[in-house]
């Protein structure tokens, strides 16, 4: 199962490497979101610094949703899901592989967004360990929930609007926890940052369990 999952993830990353959608389109777009937030808050340095954690995760959500959409368009545009159904790769492996592929791409996106937030919003980092741990937890949770919702909208005519509608309510706790954990890491709030970080790992674990069990039901369509 692990070998198959790695195979799928490697294929997805290769597709990304050849098409350069993350680097070329999504990352610049996410950076633009950071700039636009500054317009919305009238470039008020205090407000931006205070909201930096939340704005970071909103930008990740926005860019990540596009990545998930893309990850499934790649599969549906030339009937590749049929090829998966016909292949020896099981549904749990496909779920884990897709999640891993999305995870690595979102990590890449965050490597661009992170410095963007620090530079544009003038943020100081107090607690690196907490910052990295909560980024990891949040990204894991985002990837598994995203793939789970992404496959439901895959190939549908209304996928572009349906995916965010399904995904955002499911991800709301992750956005909340990520924002709070980052604020603690930025030293803006002396709060239980680690509680929030661990909550995101719990969410990731719960939805991974659901995905491994339920992905087959979603794939056996048609």
């Amino acid at each position: 199962m692990l070998r198959e999952a790695l195979l799928v993830a490697r294929k997805d990353l290769r597709v990304e490497w050849r098409s350069k959608v993350t680097i070329g389109h999504v990352a610049p777009l996410a950076l633009l979101v950071l700039v636009v937030f500054a317009f919305a808050f009238d470039a008020n340095a205090g407000l931006l610094e205070f909201g930096a954690g939340g704005l970071y995760w909103v930008a990740v959500l926005f860019g990540g949703t596009l990545l998930i959409q893309r990850a499934f368009d790649v599969e549906t545009e030339d009937g590749n899901f049929d090829a998966f159904r016909m292949s020896a790769i099981g549904a749990p492996s496909l779920f884990l592989g897709k999640s891993l592929g999305v995870f690595i791409q979102v990590v890449f996106l965050e490597l661009i967004l992170g410095p963007g937030v620090v530079l544009l919003y003038n943020v100081r980092i107090d607690d690196w360990v907490l910052l990295l741990a909560s980024a990891l937890g949040g990204t894991l949770a985002f990837s598994v929930c995203g793939v789970l919702c992404g496959v439901m909208a895959a190939g549908l005519r209304v996928r572009a609007t349906l995916l965010p509608l399904l995904l955002v309510p499911v991800l709301a706790p992750v956005l909340l926890a990520g924002s709070r954990a980052f604020e603690t890491a930025f030293g803006l709030r002396a709060e239980a940052g680690w509680t929030w970080a661990s909550l995101m790992f719990v969410i990731a674990a719960v939805h991974t369990a659901v995905g491994v069990r339920a992905f087959g039901f979603l794939l056996e369509e048609g």
Binding site: V15, S19, G79, D82
Partner: peptide
């Protein structure tokens, strides 16, 4: 199938 089942971005 009718579709070629190809990843068109790949080599």
């Amino acid at each position: 199938g009718h579709d070629n089942h190809l990843y068109t971005d790949l080599w």
